[in-house]
Amino acid sequence: MPDPAALPGTAPEAVPAPAAGSPAPAATAGRDAEARPLGVEFTPTGDPAVDAALGRLEALDGVPTEGHLPVYEDVHQRLGETLAALDRS
């Protein structure tokens, strides 16, 4: 599994911090092409496979929307495999 931070354009230092007093990302949607961090915090579930899959979503913070699909597909596949493994147990 590649490190989420190693994905192009997802390194934390590549994502500019929002300026103090700037509007929330939802308030500026569609106004410009600049990607802004969502600020959503990840809470571990305690299941290593689920946590690894959900951890991939952190790589999307600040990435333009068009770069999200491959990560969403990967997370969906991993969670599906985790559920299927529960059925086999």
Results as ranks from 00 to 15, higher is better:
5 A>Y: 07
31 R>L: 06
68 H>Y: 00
38 L>W: 11
46 G>I: 01
37 P>D: 03
26 A>L: 11
9 G>C: 03
87 D>S: 13
26 A>V: 12
31 R>V: 10
73 E>H: 14
59 A>K: 00
59 A>W: 00
33 A>Q: 08
51 D>P: 01
33 A>G: 12
41 E>T: 12
14 A>Y: 04
14 A>K: 10
24 A>S: 11
63 V>S: 03
14 A>S: 15
5 A>R: 13
59 A>G: 07
80 G>I: 10
4 P>G: 05
5 A>V: 15
53 A>W: 00
53 A>D: 01
48 P>T: 03
35 A>Q: 00
57 L>R: 01
56 R>M: 04
87 D>M: 12
80 G>L: 14
15 V>H: 02
50 V>A: 06
52 A>D: 04
72 Y>Q: 10
58 E>C: 11
40 V>I: 11
74 D>G: 14
59 A>E: 02
34 E>Y: 09
26 A>N: 09
4 P>L: 09
58 E>W: 11
71 V>E: 08
74 D>Y: 06
29 A>P: 05
23 P>A: 07
65 T>C: 04
45 T>R: 06
44 P>K: 04
14 A>I: 05
25 P>T: 05
46 G>V: 03
64 P>M: 03
60 L>E: 02
58 E>T: 10
32 D>Y: 05
39 G>K: 09
22 S>M: 06
3 D>Q: 13
30 G>F: 00
13 E>S: 11
53 A>K: 00
87 D>Q: 13
36 R>M: 06
1 M>H: 14
87 D>C: 12
17 A>M: 07
7 L>T: 09
22 S>K: 09
59 A>F: 02
80 G>M: 14
74 D>Q: 14
54 L>H: 02
38 L>C: 08
88 R>F: 08
60 L>T: 00
13 E>R: 10
71 V>G: 06
89 S>L: 15
14 A>P: 05
89 S>W: 11
12 P>W: 14
22 S>F: 06
61 D>P: 09
5 A>F: 12
26 A>W: 12
16 P>I: 07
3 D>S: 15
